[in-house]
Design a protein around this nucleic acid. Structure first.
Lengths: 354, 354
DNA sequence: CTGTTAGCGCATTCAC
DNA sequence: GTGAATGCGCTAACAG
């Protein structure tokens, strides 16, 4: 814990003024090549790190941040992400930050496009995006890149973009993890349903697709891929989804496990409960209120999740950090841990805010 | 994100000077009852929160912190806690903190007593303890209480003490979680070994005992407690422990799962591997390097853990926060989440430092 | 008991 | 290009 050098000391050692040191630290230019080298050298030599506190306290500029993410009901996935973003914003409440929220319907491409089109006009210093629709996201990012405006993603990565950071979990690994849990929890040779609940006409989401692939690969690698039964089911009409699921079970009487590859496990749980179907091990994704209550009630056995709140928090941290220092310290993506929740460890999960 | 009020503004609103406001914020006394009430009232009204950055930057006093924890090999549980403590210290590196580390042997009561006896003499402003030995810990805490020196625990709570905070996981719940995993992963009716690896003559640790009880209660609640076979095994002599474990398996040929209730799962894993024993589902505790490698290799199926690094970090945060504001904000104990690790989510776990 | 005041380390003008 | 000067919100020492 040796005492940290200050800018003033660096300046003295390099034979320049504190202002000049500050200029190179913030990449603000206007420094002769000669001094830049001298300063950078002594900074490296003494291992100078800027004092975040002093930095934050004297930071004047107000940061205009635009946040464009899906709007969801309280307690659902994107609502948790929003909470995490608010946490992050609060944490940095000492630096002046001016936020503009744009919410869109995650099932409606038009609504997303509409909101994304407003972004540039708001002249943000930075942007945080929920990249649900890939094409729209890419298009927006191209403009942001052109304008030199930094942006970050939560929830997933997007090809052909250059975000400061993507905060996301590895969904292939998550799918494989579902596979492992199913392998343990169901008898050898039984079949396992892999479901996605989607709205009629909706594309299934990128994340679900990756999970499906991860799950498939896991079983395939063990020569058991024929145990898997993939199927979508619609959630527009409750009666219909019920029929679909009951049908599935009827057609596969040896089905001992069902993995719901998105957050709609609670729907399947309720259908199975209502019909008194027992002995099917149910796994789903995301700790939404609805899923949590089914987990407590025992109709869902386990949930995989990626702490959406922490995700939101980290995206904000990264983007603000970038704004302060004009450079990212993480290498472009932050991988979230994939958490497994069962009744016993559920109570201690939410508490750990960060 | 309304602008935060400053101390100066609070002072003005309450009709006092900034110094007086600061006095009540830090519980430094010397304020008339009348003004105290007025100030506290306006603080509450405008929702004032002290600006951590400004606070950190102008904090003058050097904090003498004594840390007395077990010493372990790199990559083991207590070593991770130590890392987390260092993280926390680094985070607050801007406030002057003077640390004195005292390490003891976690299997040697005398060594602990020896180190604990040095604590008071070092005149610490605060103490962080690894409360392995209950009697010694209680004794030390009595002295600390008398001297008005705040202290915090990592790893577990200790009765009859008044720490600023205990950072620990609920081990009963952890034990129950082992039960659930075993229930899923082993065939109905098979027996399950519940082992503790201990040194000859050593008491088994409090945490292991709680886990054992949690596991037992889980099965008992389901009328399956006779599936459990409890047993200790010594790790002083490798050959002997091998015999013990192989004996256990021989006596219970229907044993399909083994839970190691402390961090020595890797020992059992190796013994099973060497003997070519297959088909036994092995669960253990703590993500040590040794366990991680067996998890990757497939000889351990899953690990339960409680992010020791985060534990250390949180203990430091809490104690420093207390030093700054002379009061705790958490209610005396922080519960860590209980994490389940399998091969698939292992790679993403360490990364999430906090 | 209470008000005043001098920094803390850094970001940002504003002169030179 | 560069250096000096000012202030951010708070702490702590000091003068009353």
């Amino acid at each position: 814990m040796g005492k940290q050098a200050t800018i003033k000391e660096i300046a003295q050692m390099a034979g320049v003024s504190p202002g000049t040191v500050d200029r190179i630290i913030h990449n603000r230019g206007n420094v002769s090549e000669d001094k830049r080298r001298r300063i950078e050298e002594t900074i490296a030599r003494v291992g100078y790190r800027t004092n975040v506190h002093a930095s934050a306290i004297s930071f004047k500029k107000v940061c205009r941040i635009v946040l464009a993410i899906p709007e969801t009901n309280p307690g659902e996935y994107w609502d948790d992400i929003r909470e995490g973003i608010l946490d992050g914003l609060r944490e940095y409440s000492d630096i002046r930050t001016e936020c503009k929220w744009l919410f869109f319907d995650q099932f409606n491409r038009e609504s997303c496009r509409e909101q994304f089109e407003k972004v540039i006009g708001l002249e943000p210093d930075a942007v945080i995006l929920g990249p649900i629709f890939e094409a729209e996201t890419k298009e927006l990012c191209k403009k942001l890149d052109a304008g030199g405006i930094p942006y970050a993603f939560t929830d997933r990565t997007v090809p052909e973009t250059t975000p400061v950071v993507s905060v996301a979990a590895d969904q292939l690994a998550a799918g494989a993890l579902v596979g492992r849990i199913m392998m343990y929890a169901t008898p050898e040779g039984s079949s396992i349903g892999a479901l996605k609940a989607i709205r009629t006409g909706e594309d299934s989401s990128k994340n679900s697709d990756l999970r499906q692939k991860g799950l498939y690969d896991f079983f395939r690698a063990r020569g058991m891929e024929d145990r898997l039964v993939f199927s979508d089911f619609s959630i527009t009409d409750r009666q219909q989804s019920k029929r679909e699921i009951l049908n599935l079970i009827r057609e596969h009487p040896d089905m001992k496990g069902i993995a719901v590859l998105n957050s709609r496990g609670h729907i399947v749980a309720d259908i199975l409960s209502e019909e008194g179907v027992r002995g099917i091990h149910l796994v789903s994704f995301d700790l939404t209120e609805q899923n949590a209550s089914r987990l407590r009630g025992g109709s869902i056995e386990s949930l995989l999740c990626q702490h959406p709140r922490a995700q939101g928090y980290k995206a904000v941290s990264a983007i603000i950090h970038f704004l302060l220092f004009k450079k990212a310290d993480e290498g472009g993506s932050i991988y979230m841990p994939i958490d497994i929740l069962m009744v016993e460890n559920l109570p201690f999960y939410r508490a750990s805010a960060l």
